[in-house]
Design a protein around this nucleic acid. Structure first.
Length: 480
DNA sequence: GATTTTATTACCTCC
DNA sequence: GGAGGTCCATAAAATC
């Protein structure tokens, strides 16, 4: 399981250097930009985005200190099963004492252990307002749209939804982080527009859209991870706890109450996706290395299950809203699979259903009702799987060749089963109708200056759609 | 068969 | 307005 990262230590070090330079350059560029703007007062080139993240000059990215390279055990010639235990050891080591000892010998930002949000924070102003907002959101459950009666409200809004009335207002655009966004998420609360993104450098950015209407821009930048953020998970019942995973093998929990990014899990292998069951806040499900699938239980404090579900990396994990024992995975091995967690054979895992594509599959998401599955593959199709036992598969053509600079497209569901949203290479958002099996509409706007490639639909506000780009921008589409 | 190299793509910054 | 730099994605081609 804990198998091949194809990187040698040398390569890893090289890439780490590249990334370090990137971070530094990004920060420096922002500084020069800021001074330039304040010096030359008015009209010049029109800037596309007014709102943008800012980096504090005192808190320059901590990139000059030596980096601890996490070597895969495989590259050290150790048996893979040993590394599984090693991963747990790392978690155990991650006490403040251990972290401190590590800091003294090697003042690296990649210390294992809790990272205070103050240390991770890269912004200019105070982040107090954000913490209060997050806590406020989590204390105020979704009063208007309780889970039970919410169904009806959402259903009504979905029935009335007209794609033509979705619009992108200039004030709903912001550059939330530097570089490429890999993940975007709304905080699950009906009366807030709080967006979280994770980028390639390991930054986590917040955009409080409402507060950005005032003089404050409402953007907050943190740097809790050393590498690309592969997953963000926030539970409906507990939105002050934000889990993030990264390619370098770490999972951290941002706890707004304690104001820390706690280290939850650490491994020598890459973590490619992260998910939680909708009804369980204590467990994490994530993919590791080539085809590995892990199940981490907070009550036990370790991984109680490790399966090898795929031949290659697992790009997404999603749970069925109707029955949370049913899970969908997508993999670079060219398949998407549906599993019943209660009946997975450890030695020879057999899926309930396998959807075959001709190339890597980037995502597989269940529809809001749980009765359909949408897959997105590099073979230029979006698969729609329906039927009582997911027996019906139709492949809809869609150009998914994003190339090197743009993150792969991943088709997501809207607020009911009627629409699937996916980015296109012409700076638009294609809307696919699963019923008609074709693209029926494209969201376009002169304000979208880049290709939106990763999306999230607001869980309670029908029509509110966030699209994120490879340049750190977020576009929030709204109704009217 | 396993590993390495190469072509592809769009964004941002600077001039 | 246009040139140059990007550089952890992926698959095909080339090489070992």
């Amino acid at each position: 399981m804990a198998s091949s990262q194809k990187l040698t230590e040398y390569e890893r070090k090289r890439l780490e250097n590249i990334r370090r330079n990137d971070e530094m350059m990004a920060a420096l560029k922002i500084h020069s930009k800021a001074t330039e703007l304040s010096a030359s007062s008015s009209a010049k080139r029109q800037r596309v985005v007014t709102k943008s993240y800012k980096v504090s000059p005192e808190k320059k990215p901590r990139t000059q200190s030596p980096i601890v390279i996490r070597r895969s055990l495989r590259t050290r010639g150790m048996p893979p099963e040993y590394s599984d235990f090693k991963a747990l050891d790392d978690t155990v080591e991650a006490t403040p004492v251990a972290a401190k000892a590590l800091t003294q010998s090697n003042p690296s930002p990649r210390d294992l252990g809790p990272l205070s949000s103050r240390d991770a924070y890269r912004g200019t102003g105070s982040d107090k307002l954000l913490m209060e907002r997050i806590l406020g959101v989590s204390k105020k459950p979704h009063e208007d749209f309780g889970y039970e009666n919410g169904g009806d409200s959402i259903k009504g809004a979905c029935d009335r939804l007209e794609l033509g009335s979705l619009s992108l207002n200039p004030e709903n655009i912001a550059r939330v982080v530097p570089g490429r966004i890999m993940n975007v998420r709304f905080l699950p609360c009906s009366n807030s527009k709080l967006i979280v993104v994770g980028n390639k450098f390991g930054d986590v950015g917040f955009w409080d859209v409402d507060s950005s209407m005032d003089k404050d821009d409402g953007i907050y930048l943190y740097h809790p991870h050393p590498g690309p953020i592969s997953g963000i998970s926030i539970q409906q019942q507990c939105s002050s706890k934000i889990f993030t995973s990264c390619y370098f093998g770490f999972i951290r929990l941002m706890d707004a109450e304690k104001e820390v990014f706690d280290l939850v899990y650490s491994s020598n292998d890459s973590i490619y996706s992260l998910s939680q069951r909708p009804d369980d806040i204590k467990c994490l499900y994530f993919s590791e290395g080539r085809g590995g699938f892990n199940f981490w239980d907070e009550r036990v404090g370790k991984c109680s299950t490790q399966w090898n579900l795929h031949e290659d990396r697992i790009n997404s994990i999603d749970f069925n809203s109707e029955n949370s024992n049913i899970m969908a995975t997508s993999s670079s091995d060219g398949t998407a699979c549906i599993w019943d967690l209660r009946s997975v054979n450890v030695d020879q895992p057999k899926p309930l259903k396998e959807v075959r594509h001709n190339r890597a599959v980037q995502s597989a998401y269940f529809s809001p009702s749980g009765s359909s599955l949408a897959t997105t593959s590099m073979d230029d199709t979006v698969g729609i799987v329906t039927g009582v036992n997911f027996d019906n598969t139709s492949m809809i053509k869609h150009n998914n060749q994003t190339g090197r600079w743009i993150s792969s497209f991943r088709a997501i569901w809207g607020w009911d089963d009627s629409y699937v949203f996916i980015g296109n290479m012409k700076r638009g958002v294609d809307v696919i109708s699963p019923a008609q099996k074709r693209t029926i509409f494209t969201l376009e706007s002169p304000h979208m200056s880049a290709i939106p490639c990763r999306f999230d639909a607001h869980p309670y506000n029908v029509g509110m759609l966030a699209g994120a780009t490879s340049g750190g921008q977020v576009y929030m589409w709204t109704l009217g």
